[in-house]
């Protein structure tokens, strides 16, 4: 029998992740690397049955998922478990597992599968988890910038109505107050909105 090739593209990989967008980013990475048998499981009820139905060689799960403990059953030898599974940890390779845990991902592999055959998969997932975290961060920042703009607009409108001033004057007033109180423009605008909305 020939030696198994290091990156076995025929492996079936299950991605267990309730975040559709993150799962999509990981799946895309794995497909780009040539893996074609990829199943995304986003629904956590009956997770074990869903996993057995796909009979994966590798299971990738995010660490925010409470259902990670469900996967721990896979280690148990029982009639429920078709193929016993090991976690992708090895005392000789702490660097790899540290990187994965810090990135927020864990992987389970079918017992006996050579580590070298799945290392590329885990490397890819770690990189994609980091990429997703960066995107999420940028998205959150964009969202909060948008929220701030909305509340500033609303505060300007209320000031114009209540004080009979122009838009420029309302904006200058907010800026001045924010500078004096060493607060963010959004925070001052929010206080104005809360206060003036109560007045009607």
């Amino acid at each position: 029998m020939p030696d198994p090739i290091p990156n076995d593209l025929s492996l079936t990989i299950a991605i267990v992740d309730e975040s559709r967008s993150r799962a999509a980013i990981i799946e895309e990475g794995l497909r780009d690397a040539g893996y074609s048998r990829i199943v995304h499981i986003g629904e956590m009820t009956n997770l074990l049955a869903r996993l057995y139905a796909t009979d994966p060689d590798v299971v990738v799960i995010d660490l925010e998922n409470p259902s990670r403990d469900v996967l721990e059953q896979l280690f148990q030898v029982s009639r429920l478990v078709k193929r016993p599974v090991a976690m992708f940890v090895d005392q000789s390779d702490t660097g790899m597992i540290n990187k994965a845990i810090e990135a927020g991902v864990s992987a389970y592999v079918v017992d006996g599968l050579k580590k070298e055959r799945v290392k590329a998969i885990l490397d890819m997932c770690v990189a994609r988890f980091h990429a997703f975290a960066r995107l999420q961060n940028e998205l959150d920042q964009a969202k909060s910038a948008l929220e701030e703009r909305k509340v500033v607009e609303r505060a300007k409108g209320l000031l114009m109505k209540h004080k009979g001033i122009s838009e420029e004057e309302a904006y200058a007033l907010l800026r001045k107050r924010a500078m004096n109180e060493k607060k963010k423009l959004g925070e001052i605008a929010q206080a104005v909105v809360t206060g003036l909305e109560m007045l009607g």
């Binding site: 660490l63 925010e64 998922n65 409470p66 259902s67 990670r68 403990d69 996967l71 721990e72 940890v89 702490t94 597992i97 540290n98 845990i101 810090e102 864990s106």
Partner: peptide, 15 residues
Amino acid sequence: EVSWANIRDKLSIGL
């Protein structure tokens, strides 16, 4: 934390 597996692994790697 959300899972016992996380508790075990984060303890194991010193997080």
